[in-house]
Amino acid sequence: MPGIGTVDNPAALLAKPHWYRNLPAEADVHRLGDGLFAVTGNAAVQEALAHPDIVAEHPLKASARAFGPNVLDADGPNHRAFRSLLAPILSAGRIAEYKQRLMPGLISPLVDSIAGIEADDFYNSFAHKVPYGIVCTILGIDASLEDRFHELTRPLARLLDYPTEETDQTHANVAELLRLIEQQRAARTADGQSLLETIERTRDRKGISLTDSEVRSTALLFFLAGTETSSAFITSLVYCMGRSIFDLDELRDNAVRDDFIEEVLRLYPPVQTIVRFASEDLTVQGVDVPRHSAVLTSIAGANRDPRVFDNPDRFRTGRSLKGSIPFAVGAHACPGAMLAKTEFSLLIEKLAERCSDIVITRDRTGTESQSFAHPTNFSVEFRTK
Rank of each mutant, 00 (worst) to 15 (best):
A38K: 01
P312V: 03
A172E: 15
G116C: 06
T229L: 01
G301I: 04
L90C: 08
G140M: 11
D142L: 05
H150R: 13
R188L: 05
A11E: 15
P59R: 00
E368N: 05
T164G: 04
A373G: 03
G116L: 07
H150T: 09
N311A: 14
K129S: 09
P270E: 13
A96C: 07
T235Y: 08
L14H: 03
E165N: 04
T229M: 00
T361I: 05
N254H: 08
S125Y: 03
A15V: 07
N311K: 09
Y123H: 12
L346C: 01
H30V: 09
G192F: 11
L224N: 12
S298Q: 07
F126N: 14
C355H: 11
G35C: 05
T167Y: 13
Q272P: 05
D147S: 11
F277S: 04
Q169R: 10
G318P: 12
R94V: 15
E146M: 01
E165F: 04
P10F: 06
Q272I: 02
L110W: 07
L210S: 02
G140L: 12
L210D: 02
I199Q: 07
A187Y: 08
A15S: 15
L267I: 03
D288Y: 04
V238A: 12
L177P: 01
S320W: 10
R319Q: 14
E26I: 01
S356V: 08
F327M: 10
E262H: 06
L160N: 10
R316L: 15
V29A: 08
S84P: 04
A11L: 14
F82L: 03
T317V: 15
S84V: 00
E197Y: 02
S63T: 14
I245T: 12
H18E: 14
D212E: 13
L32V: 05
A328P: 02
G3P: 03
A64E: 12
N173K: 01
A175V: 03
P131R: 00
S279N: 10
H30C: 10
E146F: 00
H128C: 05
E263R: 00
D53Q: 07
D357W: 01
A331F: 00
H374V: 00
L177H: 03
R21S: 08
K129D: 10
D357H: 09
I89A: 09
F82H: 13
E146T: 02
V287K: 00
R179E: 12
L282D: 12
H51M: 05
A190L: 11
Q272W: 10
L248G: 10
N173C: 09
H171M: 12
L351N: 05
F122M: 09
